[in-house]
Simulated assay, not measured.
Amino acid sequence: MLTKPILTGECIVLRPITVDDAAAMFASLADEESMRLTGTQQTFTFEQVRQHCQRIAQADDRVDYAITLKDDPTYLGEVVLNEIDWHNRSASFRIALASKTLFGKGYGTEATQLIVDFGFQTLKLHRIELEVYDFNPRAQHIYEKVGFKKEGVRRDVLLWNGRYQNAIIMSILEDEYG
């Protein structure tokens, strides 16, 4: 089974998501701005979220971490390396903060750096990739600050409020890391 250690930064702690996080994760699905920034259009029941938390805790092809403060274990969001391809040493990255009230505090930047460090140093990945919507320049800036490079654009992939949006593809390679 894939080891998922606690990752500690300056302000935050990343701990593996457990089924106990289901209520907070479900509550975060009510934050309209977080849902927009992640392009989440579907709705979920609490039971679906609980089963997801249970499933990911056991998964060997992904690491899902709750973002928490050092002095408070409350779920503030999640940061994930998923679709891990062990043969090609690659993974996809995603992050979501639970509420727009958490934006602009540095939590996303620190969580991104911690999970990228874990991906390259511990999991020995060669490539980490992500997609970010073109209406989210704040996230694009964070990813560039951590070292991600823009690779291309997937045009008109998200229909949001009657308007198509592009997804920017970004990645970081192990020799660009650090």
Results as ranks from 00 to 15, higher is better:
residue 84 I to L: 09
residue 87 H to A: 15
residue 51 Q to K: 15
residue 17 I to K: 05
residue 17 I to G: 07
residue 39 G to M: 08
residue 54 Q to R: 11
residue 132 V to M: 03
residue 146 V to T: 12
residue 43 T to V: 15
residue 134 D to Y: 08
residue 55 R to L: 14
residue 95 I to M: 01
residue 1 M to E: 13
residue 63 V to T: 07
residue 91 A to M: 08
residue 13 V to R: 02
residue 40 T to Q: 13
residue 20 D to R: 13
residue 128 I to W: 13
residue 45 T to M: 06
residue 142 I to Q: 11
residue 156 D to H: 12
residue 97 L to C: 00
residue 98 A to S: 15
residue 95 I to E: 01
residue 174 E to I: 12
residue 175 D to T: 13
residue 26 F to C: 07
residue 2 L to N: 08
residue 31 D to Q: 07
residue 138 R to N: 13
residue 106 G to T: 07
residue 79 V to Y: 08
residue 155 R to Q: 10
residue 169 I to A: 02
residue 5 P to F: 09
residue 13 V to D: 01
residue 177 Y to E: 05
residue 177 Y to I: 06
residue 23 A to E: 11
residue 112 T to K: 05
residue 161 N to L: 10
residue 98 A to R: 03
residue 94 R to Y: 04
residue 23 A to C: 11
residue 105 K to Y: 03
residue 37 L to I: 00
residue 1 M to F: 04
residue 17 I to H: 14
residue 162 G to A: 09
residue 21 D to M: 08
residue 139 A to H: 07
residue 72 D to N: 11
residue 33 E to P: 05
residue 116 V to G: 10
residue 124 K to T: 15
residue 124 K to H: 09
residue 60 D to E: 15
residue 72 D to L: 06
residue 45 T to F: 01
residue 79 V to K: 04
residue 156 D to T: 05
residue 172 I to M: 15
residue 66 A to K: 07
residue 73 P to K: 10
